[in-house]
Design a protein around this nucleic acid. Structure first.
Lengths: 331, 331
DNA sequence: TTGTACGCGTTATCAT
DNA sequence: ATGATAACGCGTACAA
């Protein structure tokens, strides 16, 4: 077993209380005894047991991060941003992949609570009320990332998905496109992606373009959905452009177009969403809405740490800026 | 404060020992009293405090994962594989990004030890002896992923990078290519990527192709390195093909070629390494060596959990199979 | 079958 | 300035 505070105390010839004091730099302790203690710590290469400390102090210096899936292009950046600031403040993160499965999410949240995490960053494309209830019941300090809760009760960091999608669609319209397809997820959910659909819809409406149900395709956010979407939509006629709810969809869509001998952007404009790294490497380089993914993580973590330390928040529901990145998939 | 085992005991009218027994399903406890306890647990929506339990049992049911950078395409898959099996066995993971910085790695390892993780998965493109020493000194149960330690002392899961690179280069040679460039990292390091260079070198040698230093470019594993590499190499003459130490390098290289009006694969063959998701979406789809990234994580975690539970390992240094995925970047 | 009491490694209060 | 000692919440000998 590793050396404990007792061993240090014994070797230094002092009480454990004194050792604890020099360890935490608290109270005043005689320089000589301090030195003795430090020597003993050195000699035993003693390191405090944080689990024991946590039990006493009721704070573990670890934070839970609940995401759908780390292997999904969007989240690594967010997690990295979060971990970076966590690290600055001496927190560690417990990573949990939920696959957006409600039961799995609830189970993870409970375990996180049992492990006494100081707080949680919760990310999910959809936000079930049950989750909010559970968070409240457990009194688990939480910041929502990517989704906003109705009401002002839960702190969050998001972007304005609706407006961003509106801007993207408007951009397509301004380029002279009329028949603009949408590939994304069903709109009947209360989530970030649904808001993108709303933005798309409103942009059409505001510009007197009639919504054509044949130009809509719902799948997930992955590339195959984009590929399939194009194939399905093109069965019903031609299109001028397509708004994709993710960059991966855009990549799949462009590949489908290419396989059909249709050139992007010459014949069909394609716009993506998120600005994942590969969007700038793809051919053609993808025009897209850039979400500040790293910042969403770091800002979210900053907020959470403030909450944990009972500091006031500048803003309860933080809305970050997105921007449209003009590249080569729109002419 | 949340309900503790005492509260449950009091409400159920039994001792905390009894509560603990039903909690852990240990010893025999009367059905009636068991029911009383369970009711009390329900009533108080009691959940055991794992921190306290850990202090007592000396196991935290959490495992540290140390990686260079989660936002680097390679690791999310590995981490996902690891977390999935961790979850099966009721472990959680603490994720640490080291940026391959030795000091940061050492600091993280110490903190993980302080937090009493039951074990660690260590990944890094390079493996410093100091790390091995620290792991030994701390007696931290560890499985190395991606890199193998000299000697049989440390368990690891890897692929045969040297042979894989050999195969890839041989494949290029068999396609009739002579002037084959290499874009990767310097070979003077003892790491996985260095082995890829060795494989490249040996394949040339075995096929009587002289190594041309002008055809070598060293950078990192990112796309810009591939882009720059092509530009630098082409200043010294033409090439038939290029072996890239990562898929991202391959993407950068292909983009550079395209910008120079050189077609891939018609004029220059390009082969990548890893088979990250985007390799199959890129245009042209990238021919590459597929590393079983998810499996590296899951197998590594399985090994680690066995070690933690003092079960024997089938193999100390596990070598996983790679395979060459033929796609469109090689004609 | 159940209860008492100790200890896991800390921090913090109260004396001295 | 320093030392005893009581928690923190739990598991587990040992007793009963």
């Amino acid at each position: 077993m590793a050396a404990s505070i007792k061993d240090v105390a014994k070797l230094a010839g002092v009480s454990i209380a004194t050792v604890s004091r020099v360890l935490n730099n608290v109270d005043v302790v005689n320089d000589d005894t301090k030195k003795k203690v430090q020597d003993a710590i050195q000699a035993l290469s003693y390191r405090p047991n944080i689990v024991a400390r946590s039990l006493k102090t009721q704070r573990t210096k670890t934070i839970g991060i609940l995401i759908p899936d780390i292997s999904n292009q969007f989240y690594p950046e967010v997690v990295r941003g979060a971990e970076d600031v966590a690290n600055i403040y001496d927190y560690n993160i417990i990573l949990c992949n939920s696959d957006t499965d409600l039961d799995k999410e609830k189970e993870y949240i409970k375990v996180l609570k049992e492990k006494m995490v100081d707080g949680m960053l919760y990310m999910s494309s959809q936000l079930d009320p049950e989750i909010l209830d559970l968070i409240d019941e457990l009194e688990l300090k939480t910041v929502l990332v990517e989704t906003k809760a109705p009401g002002k009760k839960h702190p969050s960091v998001t972007i304005d998905n609706r407006k961003a999608a509106y801007d993207a669609t408007k951009y397509l319209i301004d380029k002279g496109n009329k028949r603009i397809a949408y590939i994304g997820m069903k709109k009947d959910r209360k989530n970030a992606v649904a808001k993108r659909y709303e933005g798309y819809e409103k942009a059409l409406k505001d510009n007197d373009i009639e919504l054509d149900p044949d130009l809509l395709y719902y799948g997930d956010l992955k590339a195959p959905a984009g590929y399939k979407g194009i194939n399905v939509i093109l069965e019903n006629g031609s299109i001028d452009a397509v708004f994709c709810a993710s960059d991966e969809i855009a990549m799949g869509a462009i590949n489908a177009l290419r396989d059909k001998g249709i050139k992007c952007p010459e014949e069909v404009d394609v716009i993506g969403f998120n600005d994942i790294y590969e969007a700038s490497i793809f051919y053609p380089k993808i025009t897209t809405i850039a979400q500040p993914m790293y910042d969403m993580g770091s800002v979210g973590m900053r907020m959470l740490i403030k909450i944990i330390n009972n500091k006031p928040l500048d803003e309860e529901q933080y809305e970050l800026q997105y921007h449209l990145v003009e590249r080569d998939s729109v002419k």
